[in-house]
């Protein structure tokens, strides 16, 4: 699955002669890898998001009364599919100012789609299952990835100046985001040691 997310970067790397491997490792204060961290590279020169990238299929499924994945990074303008794979109904909503919406109760096998144009964070909940929570991170760059269980990603990015940013819903920082300016010339390895709060509530009182 994660290879799927890396694909756009690989494709880009092939089209540009001066591309560099930017390896990013995120760990917490105790040295444990932090998964579900969205890593983005925004070149100073700017980079348009190719249409192919926008046209990709992004899925935020409901399965076992949980959202999957917990964090989903999508480029601005992408469409996300919300299939219900459970036998129970779900009422998916978001009150996030970036894009408030709701899909009133829908049953198994049914799906809704939603296009996300504005970059930002969309917190997802289920009206009838308080324990369900997930985040869609809408990014405004073609160079993005989400860390896996090892807390690492590798981005194929062009050399030159830019801003490397990481985002995690539990990151103890303003807007849950940290950024650092870099000037890349060839491969680079960046590490972030961060303070991450425990995950969002997984169990309610109801």
């Amino acid at each position: 699955m994660k290879y799927l997310f890396l694909l756009p970067a690989l494709l880009l790397a092939g089209s540009q002669a001066t591309a560099a491997d930017l390896t990013v490792a995120v760990s917490d204060a105790g040295g444990k890898p932090v998964p579900n961290t969205v890593v983005t590279w925004i070149p100073a020169a700017g980079a348009a998001i190719p249409a192919a990238e926008k046209g990709k299929v992004f899925v935020m499924s409901q399965q076992n009364v949980q959202f999957l994945p917990y964090v989903l990074a999508v480029p601005a303008g992408a469409t996300v599919n919300f299939p219900n794979k459970d036998r129970v109904n779900h009422h998916v909503y978001s009150f996030s100012p970036v894009q408030p919406f709701q899909f009133p109760l829908y049953g198994k096998g049914k799906s809704h789609i939603m296009k996300f144009d504005r970059p930002g964070t969309v917190a997802l909940g289920c009206n009838i299952h308080d324990s369900m929570a997930a985040y869609i991170r809408v990014v405004d760059t073609p160079f993005y990835a989400t860390t896996d269980g090892t807390g690492r990603v590798m981005l194929k990015v062009p050399d030159g100046a830019g801003s490397l940013a990481i985002w995690h819903p539990g990151l103890d920082a303003p807007e849950h985001q940290m950024a650092r300016a870099l000037k890349l010339a060839g491969p680079s390895a960046q590490t972030f040691s961060v303070k991450v709060r425990p995950s969002a509530p997984t169990a309610g009182q109801y």
Binding site: Y93, F95, A123, L124, G125, D130, M132, A133, A200, P201, G204
Partner: peptide, 12 residues
């Protein structure tokens, strides 16, 4: 004082 947070799912 009794306080109950409003969660959606982040605290509102």
């Amino acid at each position: 004082v009794m306080a109950a947070p409003v969660m959606a799912p982040d605290r509102l």
